[in-house]
Amino acid sequence: MLSKYDTLGEKTFDVLNYLVLALFAAVTVLPFVYIIAGSFATEVELMERKFFLFPRDPSLSAYYYIFRPPRYFAALEYPSSSPYSAR
């Protein structure tokens, strides 16, 4: 990773560079993991825990909720009459 020919400034830059890019990558990915983990968590866990990457007791209840007829399929069939249509 570090070359012995680098000056101290260049080494500092390298370390900072790795940190900055790692932080950037974390900032782009963590929200996704949080949202995905949240979708598999129970309502109670989502309320209780501030932040988590793995749900304590995974559940599919949120998916049952959205895919239960008629909600999701009604939105596909009648976009204008769905409860989520634009104002």
């Binding site: 990773m1 830059f13 790795y18 900055v20 890019l21 990558a25 990915v29």
Partner: peptide, 25 residues
């Protein structure tokens, strides 16, 4: 700036990993 920073990375796997992650959004 991000491209210039990525260009300075010498560890291939780290560079590719960061690239993959930051493309997702």
């Amino acid at each position: 700036i991000a491209a210039l920073l990525l260009n300075e990375i010498r560890v291939g796997i780290f560079k590719r990993l960061v690239q993959t992650f930051i493309y997702i959004p």
